[in-house]
Amino acid sequence: MLDWYPGPQHAALLVAYHKGIYRRLGLEVTLSTPADPALPARLLAAGRIELAVSRQPLLHLLAGRGLPLVRVGTLVDLPLGGLLVRNGGDTEAPFSLAGKRIGYSTEEARELLLPTLLRPHGVGVHELELVDINFGAVNEVVEQSLDAIMTPQRLTLPRQLGDEGVGTRLLRLEEHGIPPHEGLILLANRDRIGGQRETLRRVLEALTEATAWLLEEPDAAWQLLQEQEPALDTPANRDAWLPMLLRLSARPAALDLGNYQRFEEYLVAQGLAEHPTPAEKLALDLGAP
């Protein structure tokens, strides 16, 4: 299950499907879109699906609550989240957001990212008016006159809002104290890994092949997606296509375990986790013996 509507960030998954790479490797893969961005990880934890696309901060949050989730692959190496602030207001920095109406669409935005972004400036989440916008970012910003939005779609949402006459400026999370992290990851159910290792390795092999072709043939890849996923062909996605390719993980199976350990240590230091979840429980290298 994807984490969002199909977009450039899902390019490796989509190309592997439409080029028949999964099928050639003996895999039967179905890609689905959730009705709510909170659903994929929870359905995975409940054993209702076998893989979920997610984001590293959400994994830390849910694993800390005891959900049996583990990263098995990386689709996008770099952060994709950010705080988009509407132009024309007085919110020049995070500390001036007190009293403002802030939209969010993901659980980790509300529980982790906004608190850690604001805390160094002495602002608490309780001082904001938070609005759950689900998938409706553009409509909600326009209709509810939100002052800012915490989004996992910082490469596409500014253009989407701009096309509706709403100018924004971007605060990149990693430039405001939040550690660098992987923007898009593939999760499995840790309790079910035992019987899935070989299948998951083939999934990652398919994604590696698809990513290599994407990086070698970006124009042909975009043409393929235009033909097979017509809804993906929007001005915002066209603008984001090449910048997203620069962020794709060329080795989806490769694991930087220290990255997960550092993010956990940061959460503990910020008082957002009582004890760090061991990095080995958060992320798995399926290529290891």
Rank of each mutant, 00 (worst) to 15 (best):
G194S: 14
V76F: 05
V72Y: 00
A212K: 10
A279T: 04
G258C: 03
V72M: 11
D90V: 08
D36C: 10
L61T: 13
H126C: 10
Q228V: 05
A109G: 13
D36W: 11
A210G: 09
L80Y: 08
E140Q: 14
G177N: 13
L242G: 04
A236P: 04
L80G: 07
G165E: 03
A46H: 06
R110H: 05
A137Y: 03
P115A: 07
E111P: 06
A206F: 06
R169F: 13
D77C: 05
L257Q: 12
G122D: 02
A93G: 08
Y260L: 09
F135E: 07
P79A: 12
H60T: 13
Q160F: 05
A16N: 14
A273R: 12
L75S: 07
L83Q: 09
E140P: 02
R65Y: 07
A240F: 03
A220W: 03
P218F: 02
E50W: 01
L146W: 00
I185M: 10
T151E: 07
L232M: 15
I102S: 01
V268Q: 09
L13P: 05
L157I: 05
L272F: 06
D285S: 14
A220Y: 06
G7T: 01
G194N: 10
T199N: 03
R190L: 11
R251W: 02
L184G: 13
L272M: 13
L51Q: 11
G136C: 09
R192F: 12
Q226A: 11
K281D: 04
I102D: 00
